[in-house]
């Protein structure tokens, strides 16, 4: 009787662990298949010349989309990084725990707002009401709203991890909170803050829905104009050119996805390296 029960429990454990391993394998297999599909098709269709030609006709190149993506990311990070980093400093260093809780919570709520709703908001408000037209600025601000919560949250949590003793030491030297933050506390948190900004860039790179109705689409290289000029971006090519009935259009879509994936992969590796380095330092 006892023996049977023990056996049953053992078998149950075996089944449990097998299912768990299978589940992990399924996740890894799906990821591998996706990465393989994009890499294989991407390598087959990607040409270096695509980096220096603009999209035209049924295919062409990616230059306009790459530069446009870059411009949108730079614009949005110029707005989102100061807002997020300074906001994170406030939440961690200045705010009372109640206010910090409220801001933290609402920031997380903002990160839960569907990106298409942010795009719709951008269209109604910036493109139409403020009359900016489809433009880099409208797209950049839509991306800002998406990036901001990540930067603020990672900044805040990196600062929170700095030991209280360091703050007390700084205050004890007669520093104001401002001086303490800018001279002492930011140093150990810098790695964390940088990963937050980088991850926000990776997220911004991959967004489509908020840009469809704010940035528009252009087959020309972006000008520096902030408003009234449409701007191209990589995800648009993936989305629209895979729908076309030509092989060369599909090749362009695969190439765009390939470039995107490579850049995002690179950012993730850099983030890992930073995390590893700061972990070693501690």
């Amino acid at each position: 009787m006892m023996k049977q029960r023990r056996k049953r429990r053992k078998v149950g454990g075996c089944i449990g662990w097998t299912v768990a391993w299978l589940a992990a394998a399924l996740v890894l297999f799906s990821l591998a298949d996706m990465v393989y599909t994009i890499l294989w098709n991407g390598i087959k269709s990607f040409r270096i010349s695509m980096l220096f030609t603009i999209t035209s006709g049924n295919a062409g190149g990616l230059e306009n989309a790459i530069l446009g993506t870059l411009y949108l990311i730079v614009l949005s990070i110029i707005i989102a990084a100061p807002l997020g980093i300074l906001g994170g400093i406030y939440v961690s260093e200045f705010a009372s725990s109640r206010i910090a809780g409220v801001i933290r919570f609402l920031t997380e709520v903002l990160s839960g707002v569907p990106s298409i709703v942010i795009g719709y908001f951008g269209y109604l408000f910036m493109v139409l009401r403020w009359g900016w037209g489809f433009s880099a600025l409208a797209g950049g601000i839509a991306l800002t709203i998406i990036m901001l919560p990540y930067i603020l949250r990672t900044t805040e949590s990196s600062l929170m991890q700095v030991p209280m003793a360091q703050r007390e030491a700084a205050w004890g030297l007669g520093m104001t909170r401002f001086q303490a933050v800018t001279k002492v506390i930011w140093r150990p948190a810098a790695g964390g803050i940088a990963t937050g900004v980088l991850l926000a860039v990776a997220i911004g790179l991959g967004e489509t829905a908020p840009l469809l109705y704010t940035a528009g689409w252009s087959t020309y290289n972006p000008s520096l104009a902030l408003t009234h000029h449409q701007i191209g971006y990589l995800t648009y090519i993936v989305w629209s050119y895979i729908d076309m009935p030509y092989t060369e259009s599909h090749a362009l879509a695969y190439s765009a996805a390939f470039v995107l994936l490579m850049v995002i992969l690179f950012i993730h590796l850099v983030v890992r390296a930073i995390v590893q380095r700061t972990m070693v330092k501690h």
Binding site: P82, L83, G84, I85, L86, G87, G88, I89, Y90, V91, E93, F94, A95, I103, L106, T107, V109, L110, V113, V117, I118, F121, F125, I145, L148, P149, L152, T176, R177, F178, Q179, V181, T182
Partner: peptide, 24 residues
């Protein structure tokens, strides 16, 4: 003074997600 200015500036930045959320 610098401390106060910094505090207000960071506070404004910290409220920006809330403003965005409310605006949306």
């Amino acid at each position: 003074t610098a401390d106060k200015v910094f505090r207000v500036a960071t506070g404004l930045c910290a409220s920006s997600p809330v403003l965005f959320l409310v605006a949306i």
